[in-house]
Design a protein around this nucleic acid. Structure first.
Lengths: 368, 368
DNA sequence: AAGTGTTCCAAAACCGGTTTCGGAAGTCAA
DNA sequence: TTGACTTCCGAAACCGGTTTTGGAACACTT
């Protein structure tokens, strides 16, 4: 009969038992107005025939898809983010328990993201979205809010009211970073930050400043630098901070990518991170473990975050108010080997650097 | 009227124009039996009302979902694979052009994979699957073949006939690796492989052997070791090969994870990869760039592979025969800095190693 | 015996599209 | 003028579920 491979429909079950298909449906949806004997006969038939309802047909009537969407932004060709891979893993695990699924799409520009959002919503392919890498002024969030379409953000925007989000307490974490460095004995603590368009970058700088203030250390603007978030940015940032008359003995970096660049710059100058100078990153990237020395960094569990965000979205779809779905978590310090007590004062460091910066070869030639 | 936010249905459009909804549908599906004037009026109304057909309703009738599925296997808690992140990116890009979407699920055990497969098929949520990390005897492929459900594998199984796949020519690539090492001057070339349950691991060892044979170099079983694919496996593999009387001066590794372990073991012994000993990996992991020295490796573009596999699956759904959809690609050698001409003979190396292996401290303490 | 509830389920409407069927109107040749 | 074809489109069936409606059968009052 049915030309689709083995697909058993509700009609097949109904016919097999000799009842109306509505009755089968009611049994499967736990209505109470079915006699025990009929219920049993139907359940047996469902078993025997291996019937599973078609998600499509059910969704058409119900108006739900049992599918959540995530749109991952990807740069031009430059691979995907390992954080996102784990994040998605966390989401998928959480959804699996509830029989929901995750639709993953990538978008390569700001316009493309909105366009994809629009398509997925109009075509009704998903019930809600998970938005990652929020910006201070995020067009996706504006769009979804306007449509009143359910979503949860991983990370906040400039105005974090009125929608559901889960975020790391960047301020507290970076203030903690400053405290940690200070307790190691560092007094000149630098900060290598990222573009202030990104909300988290702004918050991390704020946390750095708050940390200093809490300790009563004067905030020196020369110890702060803003770079693009990349290894190159880290190189530039380290150069900017270290070539000063009174360089920092420790550098707190907004991301691991920046920290990796900083460590590289230090190595080029023959400085060893962890003893000559201290570097701390943020992200807990696996790459950090293989660095020389292994990078000390703050980390949140991406998988945990994914699960958390997914559960929040489900709550939202169940009717909870977005305002009640806002949560902060703190990142954990993973001490590896790029931090330690200062081996020399800022002045001594400046002396060492003065010579080396001059004789520094133009490029990273390895020598024999 | 409609209680769903702004959702315009085909009926709205039909009413607005004053035609039957079937007519609207025919216009949108490019039927030819519609007069130009009617077509224009309808298209205008579609524009004006911002109508987009509901994927759900369309799928119900069509029996297609315009959605492909991928199930990523994840170990217990130990993060996701960066390769897969890029692979998914490649798939998503290819699908985006055609308006298809990708459903991503994770599974944490063999049974769970089959179970998820079953659910997704029975519920008719996807039209086809992409299967990654194939095993020599892969239950997923057996299951899908049995059901005659469309899928494309990334990687082959022991019996690669009868289904669509895309794979790297592991044999050719590893034979090429041997040739490369030989041309650098290495004569004792080792191989650190992975569990032979994994099909690619088997093929890579085969390629290694073929490479030797093609050069007329005698195959020495002592130069081959099989380890679990991980950094630890690499450490163990390096120890096994290097502690012999006639150690290899170069080691070809089945994956980057193994190669990373090998490099680490060498470093612990004070050997520098790229000069004292040569190490080549496979995977092109970004991590490799940050290694000291940066790892020379073979790589396929994960993104490209994803796109390729996605397009194959689409062809399959369009009715192409699976047998015509089988393709091999060759990996590219990315020369970084862990390979080079041998700086000493196997004998000399053995001498150096003899001392160092004895005075080797039990654990990886860094010293000052 | 008639009226009033329950209990249980069949039948039909509905979700929003696609596709089939058939017929009205117009065109053209005979 | 009539018959045969086209052209174009309305009406209805259909996909496979869920939900509403309504009524048969039975038990229980009064």
């Amino acid at each position: 009969m049915s030309r689709l491979r083995g697909s058993v429909t509700i009609d097949d079950v109904a016919r097999h038992v000799g009842v109306a298909k509505g009755t089968v449906s009611r049994v499967l949806n736990n209505y109470t107005d079915i006699s025990d004997s009929t219920r049993k006969r139907i359940l047996k038939a469902v078993q025997d025939l291996g019937y599973q309802p078609s998600a499509t047909a059910r969704n058409l009537k119900r108006g739900r898809q049992d599918t959540l969407g995530i749109i991952i932004p990807v740069g031009h060709g430059n691979g995907a983010d390992p954080f996102l891979a784990e994040f998605i893993d966390g989401i998928a695990r959480a959804l699996d328990e509830l029989g929901l699924d995750l639709l993953v799409t990538t978008a390569h520009s700001r316009d493309h993201v909105i366009q994809t959002l629009k398509r997925l919503i109009a075509r009704r392919k998903v019930d809600g979205f998970i938005v990652t890498r929020t910006e201070v002024d995020d067009p996706r969030i504006a769009y979804l809010n306007e449509l009143n379409f359910p979503f949860v953000a991983h990370g906040r925007t400039g105005d974090p009211s009125g929608y559901a989000w889960f975020d790391i307490d960047n301020e507290a974490t970076f203030a903690d970073g400053v405290r940690h460095l200070y307790s190691l004995g560092h007094e000149r603590i630098g900060f290598v930050g990222g573009s202030l368009d990104l909300n988290f970058a702004r918050q991390r700088r704020e946390g750095y400043r708050q940390g200093l203030e809490a300790l009563g250390v004067r905030h020196d603007p020369d110890l702060e630098t803003i770079q693009t978030i990349s290894e190159e940015g880290g190189l530039a940032g380290a150069e900017a901070l270290l070539s000063q008359a009174a360089p920092p003995t420790a550098m707190l970096c907004a991301t691991d990518a920046l920290a990796i660049g900083v460590v590289q710059f230090c190595r080029k100058l023959g400085l060893k991170a962890g003893s000559d100078v201290t570097v701390i990153g943020y992200d807990g990237l696996p790459v950090g473990e293989y660095l020389d020395p292994p990078l000390t960094t703050y980390s949140q569990s991406a998988q945990e975050a994914g699960g958390r965000v997914a559960r929040m979205l489900i709550d939202l779809l169940d009717g909870k108010e977005p305002q009640t779905l806002q949560a902060l978590a703190k990142a954990r310090l993973i001490r590896r080997a790029s931090d330690g007590a200062p081996s020399m004062t800022s002045d001594a460091l400046a002396n060492v650097l003065r010579d080396r910066l001059n004789q520094q070869p133009p490029s990273g030639s390895k020598g024999e």
